[in-house]
Amino acid sequence: MNVDIAVIDYGMGNLRSVSKALEHVAPAASVAVTTDPDVILNAGRVVFPGVGAMGDCMHELRERGLIEVVRQAAASKPFLGICLGMQMLFEHSEEGDVAGLGILPGRVLRFPNVAMHDNAGNRLKVPHMGWNEVHQAVPHPMWGGIVDGARFYFVHSYYVEAGNPDMVSAFTLYPFPFTSAVASNNIFAVQFHPEKSQAAGLTLLGNFVTWDGNISANQCDTFNTHCSL
């Protein structure tokens, strides 16, 4: 079976939300929520979602024999990581002190246990839950049609500290700037949930459906006015 978009199913999280949102933005595309390595590797593009604890997710991936499949997909085709699907691409997580896939350099840290406050003195809770601003650090086809600073829906207690600052595609304040999106070749990964972020999220998923996996200047010009600067 050849599908346009494979959503990797490893038993964690609400994958229906992701597939429903993809079907909504690309009604003509075939979307499969799948554990089948052949379907994933033959798909036009791959979405790697995830919620829950990192150790459990890595365990489920391993049990299903999907580790090498994720690696191959992340090396070869437009690849979108979401939430824990972003965090797992990195080398190590403080959550349970576990190793990630190590596809990208960097680690996953917990928001501080000491009480955090914003500039106005409001206490900031963990999980970081709700709609926060996503500040685009560099132009990218995935940001096409999305205003800089648009709000997306977050729910997480851990965040990525990218090993290479060049791959930070967006940052968000809570209260310090943390990496809310990374871009590396054909990989784009976000800490927030585009499938739950209403218009901005659907735009981002729509961009993924047409993205060729390159970050070329030409494509950038068509999509994003920032590129002309």
Partner: peptide, 8 residues
């Protein structure tokens, strides 16, 4: 600017 308070 940061996290918005939610209306549910």
């Amino acid at each position: 600017m940061g996290l918005a308070k939610r209306i549910i």
